[in-house]
Each structure stands twice: as structure tokens, then as C-alpha cells.
Write a protein that binds this DNA or RNA. Structure first.
Lengths: 299, 299
DNA sequence: GGGCTGTCATACCCGGCAGGTATCACCGTC
DNA sequence: GACGGTGATACCTGCCGGGTATGACAGCCC
């Protein structure tokens, strides 16, 4: 157009396209152009070119191409972190927009103009959630609330990328950094033991007591968790293993609700309080969300 | 490719390009395709097409085209808000990346691999800032800190769009929502009056006292501020007008540092405490920033 | 009511860039 | 020194972003 030479070095140096970010993120994560291209569903040469153009436009070297693979520079590290946040924000914009327009699942055209997606860690805060939903549904112009079960600790990600509008989180397990939040309840923690175990007779225990019970290792939710305990994947498995005297677990007080007869709950004197928060993106302006928050605080 | 019909309805429905967001935001802000196109530096027809394609891809109506202009739908409102955040995150990624690569101002190629931009409201927290910068500079591997003066209350925006990495903010004037922060100091507020004024003899005042002093209206920083007081643009103007007995002002305690002989400071008993915070984006992972925060807390 | 004006949409064309295939340059390994 | 694996280059093609010209339509004014 006007600048025939170095057409994109001068042009909009702070403006990235999300495609470029997606491409770079793929390379930065795989550290391998071929695999990244495959993951993106494109060929390798266009990917190389796109990253080169990105580096040229930013005027910054993002990758150190050694023979045998690729390494991130400091700038590349920065772009990976910041770019992930930017990509999440972009898809959040898309998701929330389609939701606001009532065009998500099937072809319902303009059925649900306002709806809230609430992310909860599966099976946590049962009672509280029930009360909250009931109270909110009783409000005059309540939005429809979709409860979205989320894996451990990914509620934050769901808020960031727009899969959810609001979440229940539990400190100190979840970090509330970057969100607005309202404290709802606070509860202690209990050790859940086989009823027949000697320690089950105690009226109080400490974390140290249960961390290393001979012959009763704490269960692990993922194989990354340390310790010798059995790896379990859902609460029913865990309940059964405890009932069989094979493991023990630490839970918030409210877990008493689903204990079996073969279980015994013993309070943990020194375990940190678990605080349940209602959490939402700080910039949120949705009236439906505001009403839900108001309902929750008045609970 | 594989779906010859409706090529972009099915393709990546949650993936927006920043160009589309920029275009839509321009239209949504101007509520007029022609002006928006002019602002974007393109012609109107491509802009219309781009927005149409965006609506098609999202499967959502964003604008209500009445004759005589354009109105936002609820979905459009959502996309405007969320899209602004996404655009800010994207340009933040670009800015911080170039900064990390040492390619911002002139052609310095790899001079400053780590640098921090600190946004401060002009002339606020002088002493504190001085102490902080001195203490940080004494650290073993301190980054270079660029102090970026920012207009009233736009530090948050600067953090969001990457112009700054960290900021000094003052509650209750600035909202810390969406950021991580560390409380630094807390101070009361004073009324700054002409020394000759009768009220200057008092040892304490209330907000109500100074809100409506006959013949001594509070100064206004912008024409939007209510009240009959004179509109001023910098601290020197204000100091002079106070010295001349024409206006009064409310300031944090630390403002005593720049008072003139013709000024008198009277504590305000019921004014809220002003708390100065060090604030940074919640997702930040910069070691230089971490060191600055550690220095600040140890102050 | 018939121009007139201002709005957004449509029709058509062009150029650049995204993407593909084929190939090269390079290096470590055997 | 042949080979496998890496990313870069060369070249082609088709889509899409962008421009100009024009249309459809509503309100306004005389």
C-alpha cells in the first residue's frame, strides 16, 4: 500500500491476530514445528512462515532454533504466558456472546436470552449449592442456571475461557487471584477413617496423625500425588476403599453428608479452614450474575 | 475444504480473530458503519461484510440495523465488553513480549532483557515511591524500573493492556478487582485550606464541613465533576488558587509535603483511609516483578 | 408526492497472504 | 559417508480482505 518495503514491521506493531497466537502457542508447547503443525491441522512450512512473520512484526526473537528442536527465549516465554491469557479471553468473548444470543446447543434461536453457567467441583458443597439454586430460582426474574461439573481445580480456567460465568471455589485449594469473589461459608476438615480403625475412636486428630498412619495410606486422586496410597477416581471408589479399611481421606466437614455406616469422621484440629467462595470474572457486568451474587450474600 | 456449504458456520465457532473484534468494537462504539470504517481506515463495505461474517460465525445477531443507525443487541453488548478485555489482553501480550525482547523504543536490539514499567498517578505517593525505588535498586539483580505517569485512575487500564507491568493504586479511588495486590501504606485525609480562612483554625473537620464552605467551593479536576468550584488541571494551579483563597481541596496526608506557607492542612475526621497498594496482573509470572513485590512488602 | 439525503447492503474486481507440495540445508548418528 | 530428522525455502493456488460503484430503503423537505 503505502510502505512497499518492510510491510508488516511498521504496520500495527502491537496488534496480533489470534491465529498467530494460536500458532505460536502450539510451537511453544510442542517445541517442535512438525508436531505443532499436525496439532493445528496445517502443514509445517506455513507454520514456520507464520512464526517468522510474527517475530519480524514484534521485532523480537521468540524461539532459539538449535539443531535438534527449538527452545523458547525469554520473550517467547512471555508471549506464551500472555498469549494464553489473551486466547482464553478471546474464546471467552465468543462463548459468552453466543450464550447471550441464545445460540449454543441445538438450534434454539432466541430462546434463552440470559443464562448463567455455574462451575462447581463435582460433589462439593452439595447442600450450599442446593440452597443457593433454590433461593435464586425464587427471585423474581432469575436467569436459568446451568450447573457445570468441573474437574479438580479447573474452575478458574473455565471462568477465564468463558465456559462458565461464575463458580464455587474453595480456598486454600483454588486461587482467587484475578477474580471477584464473595465468601459464602467456612468449615473445618475431618479425617474419614474406617470405623473399625483404632484411630476412629479418637475425638480429634491432627494432619500429622493421618498423614502417616501405619497400614492406612491416604488415597491419591491422581498418579502425580505423592505417597503410597491407592489411586482413586471418584468418590464412590474412595468410600468403598475406606469402608474396606484400605485407605483414609481428608475432607471438609460437609462431607459427613455422604459417609457410610462403616465410616467414621474425626475432626482435624490443625487443618486449615475451607472457605467456599462464589467467584466470577472481575470485569463481569451481567445483571443476572449480580442478582445471583446478591442472593448468595443474603443466604 | 470438507464442508463446501456454510464454510464458517461450522468452522471454529469459538475462534475469533482480533481484527474481527476490532472491527466490531469500532461499529459498536460508533453505532455507525461509516464513521467506524473511517476510524479503522478502511471503506464501509468491507466493514459491513466483516461484521456480517462475524454474526454468521457466532450464529448470533449482534446489531439491530434500524434505518437511521444501528443498535446493539444483548449479545452485541456482551461481545463489546468481553471483546474489549480480549483486545486489551492481546495488545498486552504484544507489548510485554516486545519489552521482554528489548525491542521497544529505538533500535536497541537486546539491551534490556528485563525491565519493569511502573504506573503511578502523577505526583501521588512521592515519598513512598522514592523509598521503594531506592530499596529495589539496591537489590542484587534488580531490573530497570521505568516510572510511567498515568492520568487519574487509568492505572488499571494500563496494567490490562500491557503499557505497565505494575502500578501504585489508591483505594477507595482505584478498584483492585481482577488484580493481585499488596497493601503498602494507609493514611488519613486532610482538607487543604487557605491559611487565612476561619476554618483553618480548627483542629479537625468533617467531609460535610468542607463540602459546602460558603465562598470556598471545592476544586474540580474535570468538568464532569459536580459542584461550582473552579476547574483545575494540575497541582500547581490548585495550590495557587488555594493560596489566593479561592478554593479548597481534600488530599491524603502525604500531600502535606508540598503545601505552601499560605496553606493550612486540617485533618478530616470522617474521611475514609487512603490505602496505597502495589498492584499487578494476577497471572503475572515475572521474576523481576516478584522481587519488586518482595522488596515492597519488606519496606 | 417526488426528489434528496443518508444509511447499510450488494456486486464485482484485484492483490496479498494463508495454505499446500516439493525440495533444500543442516546436523547428528550409525 | 549414507541416512533420518530437523526447520527453512521455493513455488503454486485459492480464499478472503479490501477497494469502487451501485442498489435498496427510510426519512425529510419543499
Amino acid at each position: 500500500m503505502d510502505t512497499p518495503e518492510t510491510p508488516d514491521t511498521l504496520r500495527a506493531p502491537d496488534t496480533l491476530e489470534t491465529r498467530e497466537l494460536r500458532y505460536f502457542a502450539a510451537v511453544a508447547e510442542e517445541l517442535h514445528f512438525g508436531r505443532a503443525a499436525e496439532r493445528l491441522g496445517i502443514a509445517q512450512p506455513p507454520l514456520s512462515r507464520a512464526v517468522q512473520r510474527l517475530e519480524r512484526r514484534l521485532g523480537v526473537r521468540l524461539l532459539e532454533r538449535n539443531r535438534r528442536g527449538v527452545a523458547l527465549t525469554a520473550a517467547g516465554e512471555t508471549l506464551l504466558h500472555e498469549g494464553r491469557a489473551a486466547l482464553a479471553a478471546t474464546t471467552a468473548a465468543a462463548r459468552r456472546t453466543r450464550r447471550a444470543g441464545g445460540a449454543d446447543g441445538a438450534g434454539r434461536s432466541a430462546a434463552a436470552p440470559n443464562r448463567l453457567v455455574l462451575a462447581v467441583k463435582a460433589a462439593a458443597s452439595h447442600e450450599l449449592l442446593h440452597k443457593l439454586l433454590d433461593a435464586y430460582a425464587a427471585e423474581p426474574d432469575a436467569a436459568e442456571v446451568e450447573v457445570l461439573p468441573s474437574g479438580t481445580c479447573e474452575q478458574g480456567e473455565m471462568l477465564r475461557d468463558g465456559r462458565a460465568d461464575v463458580a464455587l471455589m474453595h480456598t486454600p485449594f483454588n486461587s482467587l487471584a484475578g477474580f471477584d469473589s464473595e465468601e459464602l461459608t467456612s468449615e473445618g476438615q475431618i479425617a474419614v477413617l474406617p470405623a473399625a480403625h483404632p484411630l476412629a475412636a479418637r475425638t480429634s486428630l491432627t494432619l500429622a496423625d493421618v498423614a502417616d498412619i501405619p497400614g492406612l495410606p491416604l488415597a491419591r486422586w491422581t498418579s502425580e500425588d505423592p505417597g503410597p496410597g491407592p489411586e482413586i477416581h471418584d468418590q464412590t471408589q474412595l468410600a468403598q476403599l475406606i469402608a474396606l479399611g484400605r485407605t483414609a481421606a481428608v475432607f471438609p466437614d460437609s462431607a459427613r453428608a455422604w459417609l457410610w455406616a462403616e465410616h467414621t469422621a474425626v475432626p482435624l484440629g490443625d487443618a486449615p479452614q475451607i472457605v467456599t467462595h462464589l467467584v466470577w470474572p472481575a470485569h463481569s457486568r451481567s445483571p443476572a450474575l449480580a442478582r445471583l451474587v446478591r442472593t448468595a450474600t443474603a443466604l
